[in-house]
Simulated scan of single mutants.
Amino acid sequence: MSQSFHDRLAWLRDRYRKLGRIPSCRELAKDWGVSSTAVWKVIDRLHEHGYLQKEGNRWLPDESFFARPMAPSYLPAGVPNEQMQDDGSDGFAIDSFLVEHPSRTVLYTVRGDSMIDAGIQDGDVAVLELSSQAKEGDIVAAYVDGRLTLKKLARISGEYVLIPCNKMYPVIKPERTLEIYGVLVGLARKYGR
């Protein structure tokens, strides 16, 4: 695939983000300053490579459309590497990585600081897989006496409790009921830009 193909794909992704749809071939020809034949060649290649799918007379993004380049090496957070390669390898779809069961997955914005020692901060987006089953050590969303919270599941003296990951908060022992709502499977955080 040529560089211009990747440029067109990148442009189309940005445009989709703004419009919420794939522009028409007429719009693309005008925006790109090319003929409709040239647009169709790009669209056909996008379709062949799994970036677009056709529904009726509209083009829709396919799963690969949302994949982002994954660098072929790790990004050191300790001692700096002498040379970093920043050219991406195969695409990486964040949704596929975080969501194994779409019908049982829900996102919640986290409020509060009781889980900061687990790396969960106020404003993060928690990816929960809905399930009433969890094991000790899982971070869970649970109803404690009818009130929802995000904590680590533990057992003390044979009874299930919820442990905060911030020493400023106490262990939560249910007075009546503890119901697991979901298990944390991922976390998303956006940094200011």
Rank of each mutant, 00 (worst) to 15 (best):
T149L: 12
S73P: 00
R13H: 12
I172R: 03
A38D: 14
V110I: 15
H49N: 12
F92W: 14
L60D: 02
A77D: 09
S132H: 12
G186D: 09
T105Q: 05
P69L: 05
V110W: 04
G112F: 07
I22M: 08
L12C: 04
F92S: 02
S64I: 01
Q133H: 12
R176A: 13
V144M: 10
D62S: 13
A38Y: 11
A71H: 04
K135P: 00
H47K: 14
T149K: 08
P174E: 12
C165I: 01
P72V: 15
Y143V: 07
S89Q: 15
Y74M: 03
K173S: 07
I43A: 03
M70R: 15
Y191R: 13
W59K: 08
E82L: 06
D86C: 07
L12G: 01
E48M: 06
R21H: 06
G186V: 02
G88F: 00
P72M: 13
V39K: 09
K41F: 10
L150H: 04
P164Y: 06
A67S: 15
R111C: 01
Q3W: 11
P174K: 01
D117C: 06
Y108S: 11
V106A: 14
P170W: 00
S114D: 07
I139K: 08
L184F: 03
D14N: 06
A134F: 08
G33E: 11
E129A: 05
W40T: 11
M168W: 00
H6V: 09
A10S: 15
P80K: 07
Q85P: 01
E63G: 00
L9T: 02
H101L: 03
L98A: 07
S114M: 03
D90G: 06
F92Q: 04
M168F: 02
K173Y: 07
G33T: 12
G192N: 13
K151W: 02
L98G: 11
R68Y: 08
R8E: 13
D138Q: 01
P69I: 02
K167R: 13
K18P: 00
V171M: 10
L162D: 06
S2W: 05
T37R: 14
P61F: 09
I180T: 07
R58D: 15
F5A: 10
R111S: 11
E82D: 12
Y191Q: 12
S131N: 08
R45K: 15
N81T: 05
S4L: 07
M70L: 15
K152W: 02
S35G: 12
G112W: 09
L162C: 04
N166F: 10
P80R: 11
K54N: 07
G20H: 03
K190F: 05
S103V: 02
T109W: 00
A10V: 04
H101Y: 01
I163N: 00
S131M: 10
D90T: 04
G88K: 01
E27Y: 03
S131C: 04
M1G: 14
F65H: 13
K54R: 15
N166P: 01
A71D: 06
L162M: 06
D62T: 04
